[in-house]
């Protein structure tokens, strides 16, 4: 074991850290934008389902089923290799944004929906009987409570989506996974490249897990 660790090429690691740092920033940027879009899409979809908006809710249901039951890899292939056939050309980064928010939107929608459903009817009725409009009831009464109910599953989605970004190397995006695969291909330093990959993901995800845990505790009252 000790010999194995000693066999690691420290200079190689030092030399390639900057590549990992760049890739980590790219991964984070894609994750941030993709997750922000996912949250917006998810909230919209859950509201459409909750208010049973005619016609549109069936489209939303179809989207959620499609998005949850196809692998992200397949969705990305469709965006990156399929769409150009009908004249829509997307670069890798835009593919990543769209792919991640397409996938994340449905997961966030389900989280929000379960949160909204957990809020008792009596809350809505007592707010309505005070003269609040349906929109105000949603905004001031249901969503704030639904949000704290949904928070654990929203956080789980965030971590899941960040991990999913590792798939984007297939559309030639220079994210963490891509850099590791690239280094392995160029130098055969498989152990060092993978070790750095694991460490990079832990550095990104561990703080997020911890922050999520703290948020959950703070938002829970009553």
């Amino acid at each position: 074991m000790v010999d194995y660790i000693k066999s690691f090429d420290i200079d190689f690691i030092k030399q390639h850290i900057p590549q990992y740092v760049d890739a980590a920033w790219l991964t984070l940027r894609i994750a941030f934008i993709g997750i922000a879009l996912s949250l917006i899409i998810g909230l919209f979809c859950s509201l459409i389902l909750h208010f049973k908006v005619p016609v549109i809710r069936h489209i939303v249901k179809g989207y959620i089923e499609l998005s949850r039951n196809t692998p992200l890899l397949v969705q990305l292939f469709f965006l990156y290799f399929g769409l150009p056939k009908i004249g829509i050309l997307l670069d890798s980064e835009h593919c990543a944004y769209i792919g991640l928010s397409f996938l994340g939107g449905s997961y966030m929608a389900e989280s929000f929906r379960s949160g909204i459903e957990a809020i008792g009817k009596i809350q809505t009725e007592s707010a309505l009987s005070l003269g609040l409009s349906r929109f105000q009831v949603m905004l001031y009464i249901v969503l704030p409570q639904a949000f704290s109910v949904s928070l654990p599953s929203l956080c789980a989605n965030v971590i899941f989506l960040i991990k999913e970004t590792s798939v984007f190397s297939v559309v030639a995006l220079a994210d963490l996974m891509y850099v590791a695969k690239d280094l392995i291909g160029l130098y055969y330093n498989t152990d060092e490249a993978l070790l750095m990959l694991v460490i990079a993901y832990i550095i990104i995800l561990l703080p997020i897990s911890i922050i999520a845990g703290i948020l959950e505790k703070r938002l829970r009252h009553g």
């Binding site: 009596i122 809350q123 009725e125 007592s126 707010a127 009987s129 001031y140 009464i141 704030p144 409570q145 704290s148 009252h221 009553g222």
Partner: peptide, 13 residues
Amino acid sequence: IGMVFQSYDLFPH
């Protein structure tokens, strides 16, 4: 029209 319900309907948050 003011209304008060049977179950506790205050907004918990």
